[in-house]
């Protein structure tokens, strides 16, 4: 019971840079600063795919990342949500002709997108807060399913 109650209110986030220019990553890191203070919403940046609920993917998928990203997606435990951050992750942006194998949604399913090069931290928070309820409801369904099976 207690575990269920608290897991509903904590979302773990993992940042994956699949070959972007770092700009989007830095804006994601600055969410930790006390001006934006992402932890007040119960969102924790852990960078550990094995305990993540939300994967924030930034950057076009470069060739070495292609299989790794699939692996990473499989490693993430079930109710999971993928958010593509930045123009690169949406459409490869400026690096379309380079050493890349396509935008993120070509490799793994994407649930939400944030356009911008890079998007502002406030936009990122807004987006995460919008998809978080979906993640939570998905998790509730999942927990119910497990409960009914037992």
């Amino acid at each position: 019971m207690i575990k269920e109650f608290f897991r509903k209110r904590s979302i773990n986030v993992c940042i994956v840079n699949t070959g972007g220019c770092n700009g989007c990553d830095i804006e994601l890191v600055s969410l930790l600063a006390s001006r934006y203070d992402i932890e007040q919403y119960g969102i924790y940046v852990h960078n550990n795919p094995r305990e993540a609920d939300v994967l924030l993917v930034s950057g076009p998928v470069t060739l070495p990342w292609k299989n790794r990203l699939k692996e990473l997606y499989e490693k993430t435990p079930e109710p999971k949500i993928v958010v593509a951050v930045g123009a690169c992750a949406l459409s490869c942006g400026i690096f379309k002709e380079g050493n890349v194998c396509g935008p993120v949604d070509k490799i793994i399913p994407v649930d939400a997108t944030i356009p911008g090069c890079p998007p502002r931290p406030s936009e990122i928070i807004q987006a995460i807060l919008k998809v978080a309820p979906i993640a939570l409801s998905k998790r509730e369904e999942h927990l119910k399913k497990i409960a009914s099976e037992n």
């Binding site: 840079n17 699949t18 070959g19 972007g20 950057g59 076009p60 470069t62 070495p64 990342w65 790794r68 690096f95 002709e97 380079g98 050493n99 890349v100």
Partner: peptide, 8 residues
């Protein structure tokens, strides 16, 4: 992992 070939 981040090589995009900007020079090219």
């Amino acid at each position: 992992y981040v090589h995009r070939g900007i020079e090219k």
